[in-house]
């Protein structure tokens, strides 16, 4: 009970900080903060399928593209209210996720990784084929423009709602089934957990999250949906963010999201990397991922957890009573 209260307190504090933050930020930094929110959503989604259910996906950029193009097309061609396109993106991406996830539920490990990678590469190509709707290489622009503060507010509101959704899904029966599938498919199936149902469900939910993130991505990119923006590297960065965050944990996601969103800025200001004219961002991302996997295989979340354990051990040794863990 105390643990839940503690977490609620952390959430409340985070909400207050996030609500006050935009008033201290410049317009461009508000966009940057909004990008953190959208990567937060995408990584959260990937974490559901990869971290909790153990299915490797390298294709979440594809679902982001689906969400992004949904928003752009609905807004440009049908003048739908931008906020109204977000649940639509959620629903369409969920549908696509289920359609892909149903056959993909037969795959696991490396095979699924390959299939999703191919998906991520194919979707931008398809936008070239169906250029009537998507505007081919030039892309398609949403109707009207959005303000920085609007973008910030909407992004973080979505992030908060979806965080609660993820928490509700993962804490109960469904979350247990997901983890059972991850830890042992054989054991899960023999305990009556339907592999097809839960793998597909996890894929659908995580695709839906990616869809919303994709819509926000388009809004945060001057309202333009372009195939090049949804390249394979987008999928890779989301996976990199999830790995940095630590798979299978909700709390590390924020760190992973901040890393991915701020990567261009980090690589422009970090010593050494800064002096590299092109490619610095890729080098920084690659180095960080390889080092994280070598040194902190459980990511930031694992690091935090270990630090907390060490701190409580230290306190116990010095005789100061600590709160019960639970």
């Amino acid at each position: 009970m105390r643990a839940i209260l503690g977490r609620l307190a952390i959430c409340a504090a985070a909400a207050v900080v996030l609500a006050l933050l935009p008033f201290t930020l410049s317009g461009l930094n508000q966009v940057l903060a909004a990008r953190v929110a959208l990567y937060f959503i995408a990584i959260l989604g990937l974490n559901i399928v990869t971290g909790y259910t153990g299915q490797i996906s390298i294709g979440h950029g594809a679902f982001m593209a689906i969400g992004g193009y949904t928003t752009a097309i609905m807004s440009a061609d049908h003048h739908t209210n931008l906020i109204a396109t977000l649940p639509l993106s959620f629903a369409i991406a969920f549908g696509c996720g289920v359609v892909v996830g149903l056959p993909a539920s037969r795959l696991s490990g490396v095979y699924l990784a390959l299939a999703t990678l191919a998906l991520a590469v194919s979707i931008p190509q398809l936008t070239l084929k169906f250029s009537h709707f998507t505007g081919a290489r030039n892309g398609i622009s949403v109707d009207g423009t959005v303000g920085y503060l609007w973008l910030y507010g909407v992004s973080w509101a979505c992030a908060a709602i979806l965080f609660v959704v993820a928490w509700l899904v993962l804490r109960g029966r469904t979350g247990r089934a997901f983890r059972a599938v991850r830890d042992s498919e054989v054991a899960a199936a023999s305990s009556g957990v339907s592999l097809v149902l839960y793998k597909t469900l996890a894929f659908g939910i995580s695709a839906a999250f990616a869809g919303v993130a994709g819509s926000l991505f388009v809004l945060a990119t001057n309202g333009y949906a372009q195939p090049d923006e949804f390249s394979i590297f987008l999928s890779l960065y989301i996976l990199i963010g999830a790995a940095v965050a630590g798979l299978g944990s909700l709390w590390g996601v924020m760190g992973g999201a901040a890393f991915v969103a701020l990567l261009p800025n980090i690589s422009q200001s970090a010593p050494l990397i800064r002096s590299i004219p092109v490619g610095g961002q890729d080098i920084a991302a690659g180095l960080v991922v390889v080092l994280v996997m070598l040194l902190l295989p459980t990511g930031l979340a694992g690091l935090l957890q270990r630090m907390a354990l060490a701190a409580s051990a230290l306190r116990r040794r010095s005789g100061i009573p600590t709160a019960e863990r639970g």
């Binding site: 153990g54 610095g280 960080v288």
Partner: peptide, 27 residues
């Protein structure tokens, strides 16, 4: 070093390498 951990760990390391090599060539 990561081979014994999991398939996922190796996959992520190879993706990191992908990004790293790409960046170095661009550089």
């Amino acid at each position: 070093p990561v081979q014994r951990k999991s398939v996922l760990a190796v996959v992520i390391v190879t993706i990191g390498l992908l990004s790293l090599i790409d960046g170095v060539v661009l550089w």
